[in-house]
């Protein structure tokens, strides 16, 4: 049963990534694109965790944790650059 749920989850998250990609291309403002990239990072975490369940290996925890941290830091860095014109002042 878990296999069917995993396939459903893969489909949902993949479709969500396509939606985010559309928003990333369409814009229209820079903040929209930053938000789209941030949401893509969160959906990528979901995809990695689902793949870890499917493979029954706990090797992917660190990967998803790293993706979470880099997604957050990069989003804040983008917004800081928009706000101040510089990241580390």
């Amino acid at each position: 049963m878990i296999e069917y749920a995993l396939n459903f989850g893969f489909g949902c998250v993949g479709l969500a990534l396509l939606f985010n990609l559309w928003r990333l291309v369409a814009g229209p403002t820079v903040a929209d694109r930053v938000l789209a990239v941030d949401t893509m990072a969160i959906n990528a975490i979901a995809l990695i965790v689902l793949y870890g369940i499917g493979r029954a290996t706990s090797m992917y925890f660190e990967v998803s944790l790293l993706v979470a941290m880099f997604g957050f830091v990069s989003t804040v860095a983008y917004c800081k650059f928009i706000l101040r014109g510089d990241i580390i002042e």
Partner: peptide
């Protein structure tokens, strides 16, 4: 898993 996938999809659809 199903609830999680559904809510992730709803959030991105809202985007």
């Amino acid at each position: 898993i199903v609830i999680g996938g559904f809510f992730a999809l709803v959030g991105s659809f809202g985007l």
